[in-house]
Design a protein around this nucleic acid. Structure first.
Lengths: 353, 353
DNA sequence: CTCGGTTTCTGTACCGGTACAGTAGACGCT
DNA sequence: AGCGTCTACTGTACCGGTACAGAAACCGAG
C-alpha cells in the first residue's frame, strides 16, 4: 500500500505543478477548463476525493464548522422539543452557507476539551452557565460568538426573548381572571428544590430568572405573594411530583404559572391524579408554546416564542460575526430581543366559587 | 496588533525550544514539572489558550470530531423525538471520549460540501439514502463509518433494529385479536402518496421497508390483503390527513398498523375527527415506543425499540472503528441487531361486532 | 513589430503544530 | 574509571494544503 494521494501525487501524474492542481479544486477560474478536466480526471483515477480538510483549515484559517455549546446535560437538551426545534432551525439556516454544526458540551471531560480542542469558525452559546470552562475557552480563543438566552454582554451579539414581558402578561392574565392564590413552578438542576422563597432562585439560567421576574412584576403590583415550587429536570414526571407540592394542600393555589410547557404538562397530569379539573378548579399557564401545547387536553394557555425565528436570528448573527472576523473588521455586536406573546387557549379560566 | 501567539512565541519568552513548549501542553511527562509550570504560566500571560486545533489536526491526523449524516431535511430530523433521543444518546456516549458530534446534511448545498470538506475522525450514517453524495464522499475519504438503520453492508459496521420481527409481531397481534380488514400507514417524502399498492413502497428507507415486510409476513400468512396509504412527512398533521384516506370509506379497516408513533398519533386524531372510538371501533398500533406513546389517549400499543441502546451501540461501534484505524489495524465490521418488542397498551382491541 | 493587458501556470514561503531520532548530563553499578 | 540507562530537552523534517508574487505565452491594438 503506497503513500497517501496528495496534490503532489496528482501533479506528478499530470505533469503540472502542485499549485495548479490546488487551483483545479479551489479556484477553477485560475486555469484552463481543459487542463482542469484532465487534472480532475487524474484525481478521480487516483482515488483523490478533494483537498484534505485539516490541511486546508490550517492554510486557510477556516474550518467550515461552527460549534454550539449546550447545557451540561446533552441528554436533557435532546429531549426538549423547544431546544431541538431551535437546533433544527439553526442547522437549516446554516446549511446553505456550507457550515456544519458541531455539538459541544460545557462539561469538560478529562484531558480533551472540545471547546478548546476542536477546530471551529465560531460558536453559539445556548443557555449556558457563562462562567463555565467551555465558554471561557471559546472566549479566549477569540472566536466569533453569539449568546442565546443569556445575560446580554456588551462584547458579543446576543439573542434573547422578551421573557420578562411575556411572563408578566401571563401573570396579569391570571390576575385579570380574578386569581389571587397563585403558584409558580420553576425547574432547575441545582438545589434548592421543593417549596422555596422566590428570592432564592438565583442559580437558574438567565431566561428562567427573567420569567420569574416578569411574574413577580405583575404579582407584586397586584399585592399578591406567590407560592413557589422548584424541581430538578423538566421531563413530565418531575413536575408532576413537584406540582403535588403546590396542589396537595388545603390552601392550594387556584392557578399555576409554569416555567415551561413541559412543566405545565406535569401540572396537568398531577391535576388528573388528584381529581382536580383544569380549568374549572385550577388554571395553568405555560411558557414557550411548545408544539405539544396546543395538543394537550385542555389545550394549554401559554406564552409563545418563535423558535424558528430565534434559530434563524442566532445563525444569522453568527454568520455576520464570522464574516466580519474573516474580513478583519471589528464586529459590532447586536442585541436582538424577540417578542413573547400570550396565547390564550383552554387551560386558564376564572377561579372557582 | 502584533503577530499571533504560537508555540514559538512562548518558546522565545521562556528560552526553550518550541518542541518543549509543545510537550508542556501535549506530553506533560516529557519534561520536568517545574519547567512545565513556567511554560504554562508564560503561555497564560501571553494569552495562549492551547495548541491550535487545525494545526494539531494536520500534524496528528486526528480532529476530535465525528460526523453524523442525517436525512436531507434537518428540520424534520429535529422535530422527531425518536431521532433526537438517538442523537442525545450518541452525544452522551461520545462525551467522555472527548469527541464532539458534527451534524452533516446529505443535501449538498453549492460548492461547500460538509461531508467532503469538514475535518472528521469518522462518521455515523443515520437512516440516509446510501447513494447520496454525502455518503459517497465519506466513503471515498476512507473514514471509519457506521451505518444505522440502513441496509447492512459487508464493509462497514451496522446497527439495526429487528424491525421486521417487531412489525410481524404487531401485525400478528391484530390478527390474533380477530382483525381481518387492516390498513397500513406509511410515511415518506417522495411520491407515490395516497392509497397505494404495497409493492410500490420501494423508495423509502431501509427501516420502513423492513417494517412493511414484517407486516406483510404476518398478513399474507393469514391470507389478509391490507389497504396501504402513504403520506409525506411525519408531523402529526400529515398522517391525520392520510389516515382519512383509510378511515373515511364504507369498508374502512378495523385496525391500522402505523409506520411510527408519530403517524399513529395522527390516526388517533383523525379518529377523533371522524367520531371513531379507539379501540372500540378501531385499533391502532404504532412503532418505536416514542416517549409520547404511553401518554397518548388511549395509551398506544406499539413496538418498542431501545433508542438509548441504539445510540450507545452506534457510538461504541464508531469509537471501535476509529480506534482500529488509528492503530492501523484492519477493522472487522460488526452487525448489531437490537430487539424490537411489542408493547401492549390500550389502543388495540378486538374488532367491533 | 512592439507594447500593454490577459490568461495560464509555477516557485517559494508560509500556516502551527507533532513525530522521531537524537544529545547531553546525571545517576547507578561494577 | 568505564559503561549502560534514565531523564530532560532539542533539531529537523514533515503533515497537506494555500497565498502571493512572479514568469511565460498569447492576443489585439497601434
Amino acid at each position: 500500500m503506497g503513500r497517501r494521494v496528495t496534490l503532489q501525487t496528482i501533479a506528478d501524474h499530470v505533469g503540472v505543478s502542485r499549485m495548479t492542481v490546488s487551483n483545479a479544486f479551489s479556484k477553477p477560474d485560475q486555469l484552463s477548463p481543459s487542463l482542469r478536466r484532465r487534472i480532475l480526471a487524474a484525481a478521480d483515477d487516483l482515488g483523490y476525493v478533494g483537498p484534505d480538510p485539516a490541511a486546508r483549515a490550517l492554510a486557510r484559517g477556516t474550518t467550515g464548522a461552527v460549534g454550539i455549546v449546550l447545557t451540561s446535560s446533552l441528554r436533557f437538551a435532546f429531549t426538549d422539543l423547544v431546544a431541538t426545534s431551535f437546533f433544527g432551525a439553526i442547522a437549516e439556516r446554516l446549511a446553505p452557507t456550507g457550515l456544519a454544526l458541531t455539538l459541544l458540551t460545557s462539561a469538560d471531560s478529562g484531558d480533551v476539551i472540545p471547546a478548546r480542542d476542536v477546530a471551529l469558525d465560531g460558536a453559539l452559546i445556548y443557555s449556558c452557565d457563562p462562567t463555565s470552562a467551555a465558554v471561557d475557552h471559546l472566549t479566549r480563543r477569540r472566536l466569533p460568538l453569539v449568546y442565546v438566552d443569556q445575560e446580554p454582554l456588551a462584547t458579543v451579539s446576543t439573542i434573547n426573548v422578551a421573557d420578562r414581558t411575556g411572563a408578566r402578561a401571563a401573570a396579569r392574565h391570571l390576575l385579570d381572571l380574578g386569581h389571587r392564590r397563585i403558584g409558580l413552578l420553576m425547574s432547575g438542576m441545582h438545589p434548592p428544590h421543593g417549596l422555596i422563597d422566590p428570592a432564592d432562585v438565583t442559580i437558574d439560567g438567565y431566561a428562567a430568572r427573567q420569567r420569574l421576574l416578569g411574574w413577580c412584576d405583575a404579582l407584586s403590583e397586584a399585592g399578591v405573594t406567590p407560592l413557589v415550587a422548584r424541581q430538578p429536570g423538566a421531563d413530565p414526571e418531575q413536575p408532576r411530583a413537584a406540582a403535588r407540592l403546590l396542589l396537595d394542600r388545603p390552601d392550594r393555589p387556584t392557578a399555576v404559572l409554569c416555567f415551561s410547557d413541559a412543566t405545565a404538562h406535569g401540572v396537568l397530569r398531577a391535576a388528573v391524579d388528584l381529581g382536580i379539573d383544569v380549568p374549572r378548579d385550577l388554571s395553568v399557564v405555560g411558557f414557550d408554546d411548545n408544539p405539544l401545547a396546543a395538543q394537550l387536553r385542555p389545550a394549554l394557555t401559554t406564552v409563545h416564542q418563535d423558535i424558528e425565528a430565534k434559530g434563524e436570528a442566532a445563525a444569522a448573527a453568527l454568520i455576520a460575526a464570522i464574516a466580519d472576523a474573516r474580513a478583519g473588521v471589528a464586529h459590532v455586536p447586536r442585541h436582538h430581543v424577540l417578542p413573547a406573546e400570550l396565547v390564550i387557549r383552554d387551560s386558564a379560566a376564572p377561579p372557582p366559587g
